[in-house]
Amino acid sequence: MRIKLKFEENEKKFIDRVNELSGENIYSCYQCGCCSSGCPFVFEMDILPNQIIRLVQMGREEELIGSKALFLCASCFTCQSRCPKGINIANVAEAVRHLIEPKGKDYFGPQEIPVELADELPQQALVAVYRKFSK
């Protein structure tokens, strides 16, 4: 794949916001891949957790909007517990999701909830699911 890297206003703002929201310094990532090799959900992901970080470093917001991996991350923190630089990748993923939400697509809508389940679902779970999977 061929991409043009730009570091203009937009890209710089995106990178700064991810750092700000996640509380991490995404530049400090080694790209060692320790996060990716231990992630329990990686088999379903289209890009690896370390590539999420890399794409943020490159200011590649558009590419991240289309990525499944961001939404498959279960925030289980396996990666963070192993990262040699102490980066909380789940926080980074959360920050990116938050930033791209208005531009992204819905991964989940009310029509997908079976009627028989609707009454029993805890409200908190529903809110969390909407927050994570829809714009």
Partner: peptide
């Protein structure tokens, strides 16, 4: 290129 994301990169 960036072999870690498998992308050919162009920049100014």
């Amino acid at each position: 290129s960036d072999t870690l994301t498998g992308r050919k990169v162009e920049m100014e």
